[in-house]
Design a protein around this nucleic acid. Sequence first.
DNA 1: GTCTATATTCCGATAGAC
DNA 2: GTCTATCGGAATATAGAC
Lengths: 203, 203
Amino acid sequence: MRLKDDTSTEQKILNAARKIFVDKGLDGARMQDIAEEAGINKAMLHYYFRSKDKLFETIFNELAGEFLPKIFAIMRADIPLFEKIEKFCEAYIQQEIKTPYVPMFIIKEVNRDPNALIKRILSTQQPPLGDVIAQIKSEIAKGTIRHIEPVELLLNTLSLCIFPFLVRPMVQTITGMDVPTFNAVMERRATTVSKMIIDSIKT
Amino acid sequence: MRLKDDTSTEQKILNAARKIFVDKGLDGARMQDIAEEAGINKAMLHYYFRSKDKLFETIFNELAGEFLPKIFAIMRADIPLFEKIEKFCEAYIQQEIKTPYVPMFIIKEVNRDPNALIKRILSTQQPPLGDVIAQIKSEIAKGTIRHIEPVELLLNTLSLCIFPFLVRPMVQTITGMDVPTFNAVMERRATTVSKMIIDSIKT
DNA sequence: GTCTATATTCCGATAGAC
DNA sequence: GTCTATCGGAATATAGAC
């Protein structure tokens, strides 16, 4: 079976919908915007995806379905905790420089409708919370790190990696940074962030 | 001049609009929702505020106009840096437990329309960036803290204080925590967060 | 100031020709 | 599969009586 051409109508719609939905959210996006972005007619959107909600669901599942597994994969990896933290921050911040609006999109839409959206994702992608919690508890028992709630460590890591990208428009407006400058600051920051997290737990 | 009664029609509208806009955002909110929440007729909203956009603008300015100055006030305070960080984390997390959806509202709406919204706020509330940068540089010169980009320190602090509340619905769904439990975790976390930040910079 | 009723605009969705 | 034309509903906004 041949892979779908990137210029097939269905792909053009998906590319356009991704852009518009990520930019404006479900409520802010118009089918007309998506049709124009795709260079086709509005009726085609319904021909291929039946409704706006169905099209949105496709896009959300696609984006959340690669965003969350990336986090879960690192959590699941069979490597020492400190190395895991370093790898995660590095990979994560690099990813955000490439696709900066995806985390905001996920968070915004999950807040809009937590049950329908997050639960469907979780039904296909189980977060390896148990594994990570076990690893953290094992390190605490060994005495390599101080006692800390696993969820707190996870939140601290995600906070430092993700939040700056959520407030980038605000940061740029206040500091006057342009996009390349902001990215450069974030890139340099990747190593200091993992150091900061590791220092905060190691004994 | 007498303060406006909380039960005046104008106040009822503002209270209702705040709730609905914070909950659903500009695009998701309906004038009908706001009217029902206020217990009045839809036409009154236009009588008092002319249009949905004008009503939204009023609410946004009110919320951002107290949210940002709180951050700026701490930045501006004439106290030692470490104490400033402790005070900020404590006050900030307490505030978020009380009004948890406001940061998300501000970030979401600023991302939707960065120029119009943030610039108007900044024209009345100047962030004391210069003061904080000077203080940080002075501490670096004194040798009490290591060299760090001021903007990085600010971002780290805000990340750790704000981000967990942005992903609360996700955290609750994944971990199964209820709201009081989540708040309790956050409250305990307030002190460890400021310790973590201070440890990451002190020499 | 407050209401009901209505105008107006916008948008998702569909019908039907090609 | 793709288009034009249009429907039907929803939402903002206004007119006008009280």
